[in-house]
């Protein structure tokens, strides 16, 4: 099982919780006031409420349902209905390995998270969700034209195999734009988009718009393929 990017770090400020999916695994990812990030199974050990509906108070994640508080060690330390009770140590959410590296949060649901090597000096543009399978999104990105700020065309190359990283570059600027693929489930992909820090504001906005063009193309390709598939089964 590989390490997967789940968010741009700046999209999870302190005292916030968010939801992410990795290969069909549902996660609550949260950051306490001290800045540390946790990635847990999105299921409260009490009655199974999604922890991503909860809220972060100081360095604890509180469940939205009955307010049980879990600290950074994933220990339940406070039950509002029984404030005097010391909760048993066996009440623990399932935890996963998560690291924050170069502005990206990476999770591994099986082993220690190991961040793949990828170029430094890039900054997050956005995380964008495509409603199509990974292979369709990946192909659309490979086929899409992208140029740098001077209008020189950039060509993609794949860094590593999994997790999938596409790097767009040319002789002027290697690794201008990076796409980090997060297969969230069979039907959706999140792509975390980064650009070299030398891009101007307009250049960064251009990359954001480019992502939307690629998404339109990918989702259209997917729709066409689905319709073709339906016709085959009808025959």
């Amino acid at each position: 099982m590989t390490t997967t990017p789940v968010a741009l770090a700046r999209d999870l400020p302190v005292q916030r919780v968010m939801r992410a999916q990795v290969d069909g695994c549902d996660l609550a990812i949260w950051r306490g006031i001290s800045g540390q990030v946790q990635a847990w199974e999105n299921r409260c050990p009490h009655r199974g409420m999604r922890l991503s509906y909860g809220f972060v108070r100081q360095d604890s994640l509180a469940c939205a349902y009955h307010g049980w508080h879990y600290n950074c060690e994933a220990v339940c330390h406070y039950i509002p209905a029984h404030p005097e009770l010391q909760p048993p140590a066996s009440i623990k959410p399932v935890t996963y390995s998560v690291v924050e590296h170069q502005g990206v949060l990476w999770v591994n649901t099986r082993n220690e998270a190991e961040v793949p090597e990828f170029p430094e000096d890039s900054i997050g543009i956005r995380s964008i969700t495509f409603d199509c399978p990974l292979s369709v999104a990946f192909e659309a990105c490979l086929a899409a034209q992208l140029s740098d700020e001077a209008g020189l065309s950039l060509s993609p190359r794949q860094l590593g195999d999994a997790p999938l990283i596409l790097s767009f570059g040319n002789q002027q600027q290697a690794d201008s734009v990076l796409l980090l693929f997060q297969p969230s489930d069979l039907a959706n992909v999140v792509i975390h988009v980064l650009a070299h820090h030398s891009y101007s504001v307009d250049g960064r906005i251009g990359i954001s718009q480019w992502c939307e063009s690629v998404r339109r193309q990918a989702e259209l390709n997917h729709e066409v393929a689905m319709n073709a598939g339906m016709e085959c089964t009808h025959e």
Binding site: A7, L8, D11, P13, M18, R19, A20, R126, S127, T129, N188, V190
Partner: peptide, 10 residues
């Protein structure tokens, strides 16, 4: 849900 919209969440 808002999961697919990080800027909207902010």
């Amino acid at each position: 849900e808002h999961d697919a919209f990080p800027a909207i969440r902010q």
